[in-house]
């Protein structure tokens, strides 16, 4: 199963991943090879099999609703590429 360059572009856009022309060509080729390998799964009849998302027999793990200290804001923002007035600063999303 071959992945087309248009499909590579579509998936890269979904993943917000910039790729160069060389990467685009290489990814199409390498991913096609890997997807080819995945085809083997289609031979298995799994119609009556339930999916496994995780293996633990845990559900609805709750904790008591008690406030506890958060991380110090200054230390968190110290890692931000851009911060302003105690907030993360991002590019404008909505034009004026």
């Amino acid at each position: 199963m071959a992945l087309t360059l248009a499909e590579v572009d579509h998936v890269a856009a979904l993943a917000r991943l910039g790729i160069t022309e060389a990467e685009r060509q290489r990814l199409a080729e390498q991913l096609s090879g890997i997807l080819e390998h995945f085809q083997a799964l289609q031979d298995l009849d799994t119609e009556k099999i339930l999916p496994t998302a995780q293996v633990l027999d845990l559900r609805n793990v709750m904790r008591s609703d008690v406030a506890r200290p958060s991380l110090p804001r200054d230390e968190v923002l110290a890692n931000a590429p851009r911060a302003q007035d105690g907030h993360f600063r991002v590019q404008a999303v909505i034009e004026e």
Binding site: H10, V11, A15, L31, L35, L41, Q42, L44, T46, T52
Partner: peptide, 26 residues
């Protein structure tokens, strides 16, 4: 990232991701 995004993308989710989760059960 590309492989995972593809396997989760509309139209391929059942054939890849859901299928793989079922084989994980096996």
């Amino acid at each position: 990232i590309m492989l995972g995004t593809y396997a989760l993308s509309s139209g391929y989710y059942d054939a890849y991701y859901l299928k793989a989760q079922k084989v994980r059960t096996l």
